[in-house]
Simulated assay, not measured.
Amino acid sequence: MTGPHPTTLDALGEALHFLRMNGVFYCRSEFGAPFGLALPPLHDCMMFHVVTAGRCWLEVDGADPLALNTGDFVLLPRGEGHRLVSEPGADAPGLFDLPREVVSERYEVLRHGGDGPATALICGAVRFEHPAAHHLVAALPACIHIDASALPHLDWLHSSLRWMAAEAQTLRPGGETVITRLADIIVIQALREWIEQAPEARAGWLGALQDKQIGRALALMHRDPARAWTLATLASEAAMSRSAFAARFTQQVGMPAMQYLLRWRVHLALARLQARQEGLAEVAAGVGYQSEAAFSRAFKRVLGLSPGAVERPAAAR
């Protein structure tokens, strides 16, 4: 159901609200120094680690080792392969080469390493299923590190981490659900914190969302993709002339407004087709196409395949 058009602007908040996460994998890791763990790339996922006790190092190819201490949170938005080690350069066997205790389909416990100082982490991989995720991930750095000890104002992070650590330690009935929900909240909050603090978040798609006029146009397209938008109606909503709006939109977003709308509709339709809960005609109408043929042409132009060729993601299967 389409909500009312926004009268006050929070396009960025709405975009984050759209990001429905699907947890792919969660693991409680208990290490003893010396230790090492190599995680494979998961390029369609965001991977994160929360250090609940002790310390370790994060190694990503092409970057300096990153020290992680108790209470730290690190997010790899594009799911690059990486290593967690007790010291830089330590041997790191692959995740799937180590024995793991399978608690449920999506939750495991990993114990590995020697008799030295202990380190505990909550690790996870989440997938965003909304079209906004593609734009967001492209705008993010390769690694987001939040040093909780250096940011005393982040009370939400401290309390969430303590709660997550307690649940992971005992895993009472329902504990897996609590951990996964907390992980979702922490990932979204970490993204909000980065967006508020990072200068690079003022440019590109993220910057456009925070622009009063262009952000309004984006929010309207996001909320009501089926509306018969034109460049003129979008410019009117943004209280700009048609030419000024077209130029500023292209400059900030990196593509013309109508091209953005086309891609938004198609990626939104892709997510709905993958969910397999609606027929083709219903999906087409839901993103602004009265004709299945016109929808199929637009779909193929953007994605290079027909709507009928769409398969459900492996994780959903």
Rank of each mutant, 00 (worst) to 15 (best):
C56G: 12
L182A: 08
E167M: 09
A226T: 04
R265F: 04
D64K: 12
M21G: 06
A275E: 15
E101V: 01
G254P: 04
G13N: 15
A148N: 07
G204T: 02
I185D: 10
N69D: 15
A315G: 00
E59I: 11
G54F: 15
L9P: 03
A33H: 10
G124Q: 10
G54C: 11
V287E: 02
F25W: 15
V51S: 06
L261V: 06
M164L: 15
L305I: 14
A309C: 03
R317D: 06
L270C: 00
L191D: 08
T2Y: 09
A138D: 15
G94W: 14
R248E: 03
E311G: 00
V126F: 07
W264R: 03
V187Y: 10
A165E: 08
S243T: 07
H222M: 12
E14F: 15
F299Y: 11
G71R: 13
L75H: 08
S296Y: 03
H134V: 02
A235N: 03
C45W: 07
T233E: 01
R276D: 13
D147E: 13
P199L: 13
R55G: 06
D211H: 14
F31T: 04
L270D: 01
F48L: 14
A315H: 12
V51R: 07
Y289K: 03
V103Y: 01
F249K: 00
P313H: 04
G215V: 02
E292T: 15
A275R: 15
L234F: 02
L12T: 08
V103L: 06
D155N: 13
M258E: 09
W264S: 00
R127K: 11
E101T: 04
A190V: 12
A244K: 04
M255Q: 10
F35Q: 04
Y260R: 03
R55V: 01
W205M: 02
D10W: 06
R100P: 00
N69S: 14
S104G: 08
C123S: 13
P117K: 10
L231Y: 00
L220S: 01
E200D: 14
A190D: 05
A281C: 03
R162K: 09
G71E: 09
S86E: 02
T119V: 13
A132S: 08
H153Q: 14
P4T: 05
T250E: 04
R265S: 02
P131S: 02
L121V: 06
H112V: 13
A38M: 08
L218A: 01
G304P: 10
V85H: 06
T250Q: 05
E101G: 01
V74N: 07
L76Q: 12
Y26M: 09
V50N: 02
L68Q: 13
C27W: 05
H130T: 07
W194M: 13
M1W: 12
A217H: 03
A269K: 06
T8A: 10
L39R: 12
